[in-house]
Write a protein that binds this DNA or RNA. Structure first.
Length: 229
DNA sequence: GCATTAACCACAG
DNA sequence: CTGTGGTTAATGC
């Protein structure tokens, strides 16, 4: 962790809300206990089943959180910057309970877990921000869970496309970062069903696909599909 | 029964 | 890796 000459926590412009609450001396401590690493697309950031190590903070890129189930791998969520990942599994267990993989070139700031824990213990504002982030995340996860459980595939896929456009890329035109198979893993379906469903969306003029470039032509209709299935 | 949905399988670019 | 088609099991009129 000694290759941080180019990075300074104090002058960092993409601090998390939690780190924003830290004072000068705390930032100094942080600065002595972090490391930045870059991951290429499809590189594993941490793997389910291995020993937990450092808290990860996503600075750039896009990451999938996924977990092996009884039958297949499932994508639990997609994470865009700026966001901590791994807090529940690192503070909650000795082994990673899920995996994180870069799905675009990604840079990650790793923070020593003991230092992170110490900051929570000693700085209530810092801890509060972390808890707030975890809470908001859980609420979103509940929302997604219930939608996934009660909608059929057209609705689930429409949700996923709207999520990518609205929340991840903030554009109706975007480069699909997931393969068909991963899309299936993401919306609790199979690659074949995803293909079929995308074809029917295309046929109905809701979307356009050119290679990896997706265009949402009729968002209103997608929202309708999302609601009615 | 009959229609619909979606997973599973196999084969082809 | 992706698209397609046939088959099949579950579910709902």
């Amino acid at each position: 962790m000694n290759q941080n000459e180019n990075y300074s926590c104090e002058t960092c412009t993409i601090k998390s809300c939690a780190v924003e609450t830290l004072g000068f001396s705390e930032l100094q401590i942080l600065e002595r206990n972090f490391g930045v690493r870059h991951f290429k697309k499809n590189e594993t950031i941490f793997q389910q089943g291995s020993l937990t190590s450092n808290i990860a903070y996503i600075k750039h890129g896009l990451v999938k959180i996924h977990k092996k189930g009884p039958v297949k791998d499932q994508i639990l969520k997609l994470i865009k910057p700026l966001c901590f990942i791994g807090i529940p599994t690192i503070l909650g267990d000795r082994l990673y309970q899920y995996s994180a993989t870069a799905i675009e070139n990604t840079s990650v700031c790793f923070i020593d877990t003991d230092v992170f824990r110490k900051l929570i213990l000693e700085n209530g504002k810092f801890g509060n921000e972390i808890i707030k982030e975890l809470c908001q995340d859980e609420l979103l996860f509940f929302e997604r869970s219930i939608n996934q459980m009660q909608k059929q595939i057209h609705g689930r896929l429409a949700d996923a496309l709207l999520f990518l456009a609205n929340d991840i890329f903030q554009s109706e035109v975007f480069i699909m970062p997931l393969s068909r198979s991963e899309l299936g893993d993401f919306i609790h379906s199979t690659r074949e069903s995803v293909t079929r469903c995308l074809t029917s969306f295309k046929k109905d003029g809701l979307i356009e696909i050119n290679g990896k470039q997706f265009t949402l032509l009729d968002k209103a209709a997608l929202i309708r599909v999302s609601k009615t299935g």
